[in-house]
Design a protein around this nucleic acid. Sequence first.
DNA 1: ATTTTCATGTTTATCGGTGAATACAAACAC
DNA 2: GTGTTTGTATTCACCGATAAACATGAAAAT
Lengths: 142, 142
Amino acid sequence: MFIGEYKHTTDAKGRISIPKVFRDDLGESFYIAKGLDQSIFVFAQKEWDEIQEKLRSLPLTSKKGRAFTRTFNAGASKCSLDASGRILIPQNLREYAGIDKDTYVIGVGTRVEIWAKDVWEQYNEDELSYDELADSMEELGI
Amino acid sequence: MFIGEYKHTTDAKGRISIPKVFRDDLGESFYIAKGLDQSIFVFAQKEWDEIQEKLRSLPLTSKKGRAFTRTFNAGASKCSLDASGRILIPQNLREYAGIDKDTYVIGVGTRVEIWAKDVWEQYNEDELSYDELADSMEELGI
DNA sequence: ATTTTCATGTTTATCGGTGAATACAAACAC
DNA sequence: GTGTTTGTATTCACCGATAAACATGAAAAT
């Protein structure tokens, strides 16, 4: 279970140190993929397998299914921690997320997300206030 | 499992270097064929056999089945990596995909796809908007 | 037979990824 | 408070993958 918000830095080569508390849960090797809202998703192996299972069930004959599988897989890569607990964020994902140095790594329950500092802060300002979100949650039955 | 997006260049002779990470999974010899959405498909032997199996099961009486089998097989060829890890993309496929120099090689799970840079970038703009991606993910419960 | 063309091989240079070492900072124990 | 431990940041150096250029050789054309 991934929780918490951590401000880390991405180095000149595009590597970022994964918060210590996430490392065990991520395991030996895990996956990084293009996320939503200009973020990067990081999935543990188990979670990844479940997603792939769902993707396999999509009909290949459907244009939309092909498109999604394609985009999702193309934007993903397998990764593992180096000796210092870092991963390399692929360049295309760095560009997508607008990451160059100041970065946030946040735990979102089933996955980890990586955000450029500016994007994350902007998102928190722009998006619905926490109170408003709480109201919406009620609609979702939480 | 093929994943990731790699920007490579096709040389003047129509050769392109296959990403190192794909080479083992592709094996000694593999197949290149006309793909969908103006892309080129590359299949490992095993995957190729399965496709051929499916094609064989198509009723010979079906006009569309015959046509597809014909086009698919006619446009395909067996290939292998040269000493530098490159393959030669047959000219007809290069023309079909609009490839001349800047090229993307992407992993799509069960196969590799080769795209002309412009076509791939256009496809990503057109086909799968951000909202659609989000919706698809929601349907999948991600 | 000579030239031309095309496919294939080889070499070199560059750049990005990878690893290791060190420095810094925060948390904790005493 | 001081010293120790642990986690993160930074830097440097190396290695390997890719790109580009060049070389070789075979087949086709004249």
